[in-house]
Design a protein around this nucleic acid. Sequence first.
RNA 1: GGGCGAAUAGCUCAGCUGGUUAGAGCGCCUGCCUUACACGCAGGAUGUCGGGGGUUCGAAUCCCUCUUCGCCCACCA
Length: 751
Amino acid sequence: MTDQTLPPQYTPAAIEADLYRFWVEHGSFAPEASPRRAGGAGAPPLPYVIMMPPPNVTAVLHMGHGLNITVQDVLARFERMRGRPTLWLPGTDHAGIATQNVVEKLVAKEGRTRFDLGREEFVRRVWSYVDETGGAILEQLKALGSSADWSRTYFTLDADLSRAVREVFVRLYEKGLIYRGKYIINWCPRCLTALSNEEAEKSEVDGKIWRLRYPLASGQGFITVATTRPETMLGDMAVVVHPGDKRFHALLGQRVRLPLVDREIPILADEAIDPEFGTGAVKVTPAHDPLDFEIGQRHGLTPLDIMTPDAHLNETVPERFRGLDRFEARRRVVQEFEALGLLDGVDSHRHAVGRCYRCDTVIEPRLSDQWFVKMKPLAAPALDAYRTGQLRFIPERRGEEYATWMGNIRDWCISRQLWWGHRIPVWYCDACGTTTVSRDDVARCACGAVPRQDEDVLDTWFSSWLVPFSSLGWPERTDDLARYYPGSVLVTAPEILFFWVARMVMAGIEFMGGVPFDTVYLHGTVRDTQHRKMSKSLGNGIDPLEVIEKYGADALRYTVIASMAVGTDVILDPKDLETSFAPGRNFANKLWNAGRFILTNLPVATGTGDPVGRPYGGSIRPLAGPHANVVRRDELTLADRWIIARCDRMVREATVNYEKFRLNEAASAVYHFVWSDLADWYLEQAKPRLHGTQPGGDVARAVVARTFEVALQVLHPIMPYITETLWQRLPGRAPQASIMRSPWPRPARRA
RNA sequence: GGGCGAAUAGCUCAGCUGGUUAGAGCGCCUGCCUUACACGCAGGAUGUCGGGGGUUCGAAUCCCUCUUCGCCCACCA
């Protein structure tokens, strides 16, 4: 005698979509719908707000999202059930380079480039691409069971957020915190744009270092320099040695005759040189190396830019080199030095090379005009917020990383030579030479001429760092802004601590007068069994949608949560999904069957709408209808009292662990209660009573119903679908009742 | 070059303020298709808690050191 409506194996695919629709249709994810805490008196509960890190609008769901989104959903569902009006605010990021690259590839399939289309047409293409495919990632997030408030979804290029971006740009400019300057920036010769330091990924390579002889202008001997990029010698403006390096004292003040280009350059002394490295003498190319640029500034050297934007040699170099690609040029330069007998030698040399984080192209340091944000004035209060405890990190050690970074912060290059993004709100008038920075488009200059807008767009993070308030309507004073700023916790991967988290703190303090959240929870990374980060290029990824289809969202969520201690990585085997997700799948099935057994043995619902039992902590009573008697304490058997005590303990443990972000411990507490205590032990011993071969069936039923319900509630944040499904089938439920609105169980006081 | 983390069962990992016989999942062995579940049940084996030293009545846990991995930051040409 089992419940024929429930199959013996849990079939997530059959329930998830309908259930998700049920939640959405009942507005369950809006903060306005959060259940009120029992009691009611006193101040209204503090809202609980999480800003979802907006996925790239072109993103395809991967396990990194799976983990990040699950953690946030667990926290949101937990706090919601505990009675706090909960807002989990979703959005998508326009992701400048990433999105532009995707569309450029599509355009390339037509045999064209973005330059063929022109700026306006290209941007139109990106918009239509985003309109068509941009919602996909959000739909995929929903499959995970995310209880985000979709009615408030934003996009970082929306009109509202654009207004915020301009407001911020203008305010910072007027405050003198935004400036334009010449600088050596990381340049991607393929994307043709500047990259921030954070976007330039260093990777070690086995390269070479060449020793080149530069003949002295006097004709007497030479000085030998070492370089990993010989081609840059065409732009050398000096040779520099350490002032204390006796080997070169006689040469200071002399000049060398630069080979190949036949140009004289000075030999200078600078503290920045390490006499121990290489030959102790360094060639200085101010236009193509950041250190060289600094040295050049100290000594008044004029930078000579020898490259085109796509890293070919330009017209400043001797004719035979013009048009050569930088690597080709490297070979040619080395060849010629060798032919001239000026190549002193070559060594293999392991060193770090910067690469574009989007396309992996080797970065070319390049001198150019860019816009910058002066960071020190913004960083100081943000560092202070951490020092004074307004901001905490989990795990704690991340706080020190944050502090170190804040303490050594450099100015932020915010201009990007892209077409897709927030256009820089600066207009130049060629007629009268004025520069206008404005919140509104400038159609006409004060002198009457038509000005041209700056060609560049802003770094994507320049809109992202504002989302804690721009997504709530800032700079307007909206109700949402008043209600939901500041937020509570930010959940993200440590990779974007500096890209995003640190900058949000700075923006929050600068524009809202306070930190945007009090807690930053940094979770680990999903890796394969060799501890490699899962990535598309390595082909070691796991498709969360495939896992959901096979084993269900709950299985995925449970597995990920259970295998993640605070701040540690999650290791999964992409080659064996079954084994990887067995913990979640097996547990879901166990729960399902315990539920089937229990539901079968409970009285049929009477439709009175009575809840099962009273709030936990009150006395246990059996179900509504013919059994509606309160169970007296002296009716409980030893086993009954035992399982109730275990249940109490489980609630205490799980609650504390949820609060402390030890989600794996919370999961483990319910897991063992359900599996070992309730199913393996209590249900087995209660079978004679439940089946009527022993007296006391009503008491056993009451205990089963109540402890099982509590387990479902405590597990709901982690496994929302299966717990809701079973909960709704408990007898006595009103037709539209939801576990999401049931009050969080409170353990009985210890007698 | 700095900073940080990790090393615990065959595998992947917990072990939070030092305190009885060190835990989980998966895998393995024995017996079970017992009318909720074989994605299961009952039972079982498996650990010099990386090496060495120290503090302590007591150390996987604290300190020092070595080894091996990993991560982050950094302008070593």
